[in-house]
C-alpha cells in the first residue's frame, strides 16, 4: 500500500513496514555510480522491491546514495562501531562477559584495553560498569567488545566508569542525547556541572558532585523524551528551582 512520494510534503517522511520505496526516486541522486546503500529499517524483498521493515522516518544522504529508516526502540541490537555501556556479568581466562542489554551477553577480551599485555592487564570484577566499543557484531554470533580505539590503540575515553549512576532510556533518546546541540543537556549544563557517558544501547551514566544533582539530571533526561523545546526549558527550570 501507499508507495512513497519522494517530494517532501512535510518535514517528516514516515514509513511503516510494507511501504515500498519507488525505484525511480531511489536512483535520482546517484548520477555517477548506480549504487544504493540501504541502512537499518530497509530491506530488499522477494519481489525485488525495496520495502521498509520498521516504522520510522525515512532519511536520505546523497553521499553514497544512502537510505535508512530512523526508528526508535528499547531493545538493543548490537552494531559494529557503536559505543555502549555494559555491566560485567562473568569472567573467564580470556574474556569478560558483559551485559549490554542485547539478546545475548557480549564478549570483551581481557587484552582489549589500552596497553594491556599478558603480564599486565586491567582487572575488572563482576558488577563493574564499562564504556566500550562494539568491535564485531554479527546476527549469528555474540557481539565482541573492546575498550580502546583500534587504529591508535589508545583508550580514547573507553574503560571503567567509576561512581555515578546509570539509567536506561530508549535507543532513540540516547541517539538524540549524542547530538551536540541537544537541548536538555545544554540547559542542565547551565545550572549544574556534571559528566556523563551515553551508550547507544540506551544506557546513560551520569556523575556529578552530589546525589541530588545526579538524580535531578537523570529525571530531566527521562522527562525530556516527549517534550518540545519550550516545555523542555520549563521542565528543567522547575526542577532546578525545586532543588
Amino acid at each position: 500500500m501507499a508507495s512513497i512520494t519522494t517530494e517532501e510534503e512535510s518535514k517528516l517522511l514516515i514509513v511503516l513496514p510494507g511501504d515500498q520505496l519507488p525505484e525511480s526516486g531511489l536512483m535520482e541522486d546517484s548520477s555517477a555510480a548506480h549504487r544504493l546503500t540501504l541502512g537499518p529499517g530497509l530491506a530488499p524483498m522477494d519481489d525485488d522491491s525495496i520495502t521498509a521493515v520498521k516504522a520510522g522516518i525515512l532519511k536520505h544522504n546523497a553521499v553514497g546514495n544512502r537510505w535508512w529508516v530512523e526508528s526508535n526502540q528499547r531493545r538493543y541490537v548490537a552494531a559494529q562501531g557503536e559505543s555502549i555501556i555494559g555491566v560485567v556479568t562473568g569472567k573467564s581466562v580470556e574474556h569478560y562477559k558483559v551485559d549490554i542489554g542485547a539478546s545475548q551477553p557480549a564478549l570483551l577480551g581481557v587484552l582489549a584495553f589500552e596497553g594491556a599485555t599478558k603480564r599486565n592487564k586491567p582487572n575488572h570484577n563482576i558488577g563493574d560498569l564499562l564504556y566500550c566499543r562494539v568491535s564485531m557484531a554479527n546476527k549469528d554470533m555474540e557481539a565482541e567488545l573492546e575498550c580502546m580505539n583500534p587504529t591508535t590503540g589508545k583508550a580514547d575515553g573507553f574503560g571503567e566508569l567509576k561512581g555515578g549512576f546509570v539509567i536506561k532510556i530508549s535507543l532513540g533518546l540516547a541517539r538524540r542525547l549524542l547530538d551536540p546541540k541537544n537541548l536538555v543537556l545544554r540547559l542542565l549544563g547551565q545550572h549544574i556541572p556534571f559528566e556523563m557517558a551515553v551508550g547507544t544501547n540506551g544506557k546513560v551514566w551520569v556523575n556529578s558532585a552530589n546525589a541530588q544533582h545526579t538524580i535531578l539530571i537523570c529525571n530531566a533526561i527521562r522527562n525530556s523524551e516527549y517534550l518540545n523545546s519550550a516545555e523542555c526549558s520549563a521542565m528543567v527550570k522547575s526542577l532546578v528551582e525545586k532543588m
Binding site: L12, L16, R176, S224, N228
Partner: peptide
C-alpha cells in the same frame, strides 16, 4: 484500521522528533 495505525505511529514519531524540528 490501517489508516488509523499509520496515524497513531505518525503522531508518536512527531512527538519524539519535535525538539529537533522545532
Amino acid at each position: 484500521v490501517h489508516g488509523f495505525i499509520r496515524t497513531a505511529v505518525q503522531k508518536k514519531l512527531e512527538k519524539e522528533q519535535q525538539q529537533i524540528h522545532s
